[in-house]
Computed example of a mutant assay.
Amino acid sequence: MKKRSLMIAGHPTSVTLEEPFWDVLKELAAAENIAVNALVERIDASRTGNLSSAIRVYVLEACRRPSGVARV
């Protein structure tokens, strides 16, 4: 598990995820040419539960899509 600090909607927060989730999240952000913070902010805006769980689900959905891009 790796804890990282992020700025979400102008507020500092920390998120704890397993390293493989961080790796894929970085790849997804790079594929969209945006910062990881921006991608997490987008995930945060559409979530209903825990942020770490929402990120994991987003990454899982992205890996399941043929294009490798999740939709939020």
Results as ranks from 00 to 15, higher is better:
M1D: 09
M1F: 01
K2M: 03
K2Q: 07
S5M: 11
S5A: 13
M7D: 06
M7A: 11
M7S: 07
I8D: 03
A9L: 06
A9I: 06
G10Y: 03
H11D: 13
H11R: 15
T13N: 06
T13F: 09
T13A: 07
S14K: 09
S14E: 09
V15H: 02
V15M: 01
V15R: 00
T16V: 03
T16W: 04
L17T: 04
L17Y: 00
E19F: 04
F21L: 13
F21C: 13
F21Q: 07
W22G: 04
D23K: 13
D23T: 09
V24A: 10
L25D: 00
L28M: 08
A29T: 03
A31V: 07
A31H: 09
A31R: 05
E32V: 09
N33T: 14
N33G: 08
I34G: 14
A35V: 15
N37M: 10
N37I: 12
L39R: 03
L39E: 00
V40G: 01
V40M: 12
E41Q: 15
E41P: 08
E41S: 09
R42L: 05
A45M: 05
A45L: 08
A45V: 08
S46I: 09
R47W: 07
T48A: 15
T48P: 00
T48M: 10
G49N: 13
N50A: 07
N50D: 10
A54N: 05
A54K: 12
R56I: 03
R56F: 11
V57G: 03
V57D: 01
Y58G: 00
L60W: 15
L60Q: 07
L60M: 10
E61T: 12
E61K: 15
E61V: 05
C63H: 14
C63A: 15
S67R: 12
S67C: 01
G68I: 02
G68T: 05
V69Q: 06
A70C: 04
V72L: 05
V72Q: 13
